[in-house]
Amino acid sequence: MNIFSRIRRIPFWSWIWFILGALYFILPLYATVNFSLRMERGVIGFKAYAKAFEDPEFIRTFLYSNALALTTIIVSIILIVPTAYWIRLRLPEARRIVEFITLLPFVVPAIILVFGLIRIYSSPINIPFTDTTLLQPLTTFEVGTDILIVAGYVVLGLPYMYRSVDTGMRTVDVRTLTEAAQSLGASWFTIIVRVILPNIRAALLSGALLTFAIVVGEVTLASFLGVPAFGPYLFLLGQHRAYEPAALSFASFLLTWVVMGLIQLFTGGQEQIAGAH
């Protein structure tokens, strides 16, 4: 059956709902793009984009947020993949508890999280009943603050990353693949790196993309921890300028879609393999 005859078979009302849904997403996007192109009176052009990209602060905050996002993704993978794997393999009874924990960021707002982090890590942590300092206040130096914000972002991205990884593991028979690898002499590390990770690559990339999107646009944690991130920069820009924030928002949106397209491109075959299992 070719694509046209398939399209013809889709019911009328399905088309109506699809068009309404598409308009709901496309109209605001169109308005943003349209607005961002009208910086000069009576002229349609890319001046707002040029001005936004010229600002050295944009490059600095954008690169910084990207670095934070990458670090968050790496830490999340190191933390979540073995956890989800172990729960699926050996501790299925712990699954509900872990799922509940991963949903907490939806219930506890980011403002509570950041105040908690500042409250605990802005004073030195001593070994109990001694004067020996175990940890200097993390908020007092740059690397310390970076550690805090990455930790916060790992928590914020937890629901997305855990769910993606868990869903990915559901599509492959983790237990049997593990046992097959074990019987062939593989260690736990080898099993995770060479058998499990490659087979949940698509799920990992989806989780990573969502985490990336959250981190790059995040404002609350970055503002209160006082780091030069892209979210607060965009927020400030929005308070003082009109056209550049619209241009940058659309540029971020475009970047996200390019990344998604690349993921689709590189993982198309992978999904086929997992699906055929």
């Binding site: 492959v172 028979d173 049997t176 693949l177 046992e179 097959a180 690898a181 074990q182 019987s183 062939l184 002499g185 593989a186 260690s187 058998v195 490659p198 087979n199 690559r201 992978q270 393999i273 997992a274 055929a276 299992h277």
Partner: peptide, 18 residues
């Protein structure tokens, strides 16, 4: 299991899809 040098064939094949 990795130290036993015992080969195993499973009902569900368990080939590594990647």
């Amino acid at each position: 299991p990795s130290q036993r040098n015992v080969g195993m064939v499973f009902q569900s094949y368990a080939l590594f899809p990647n």
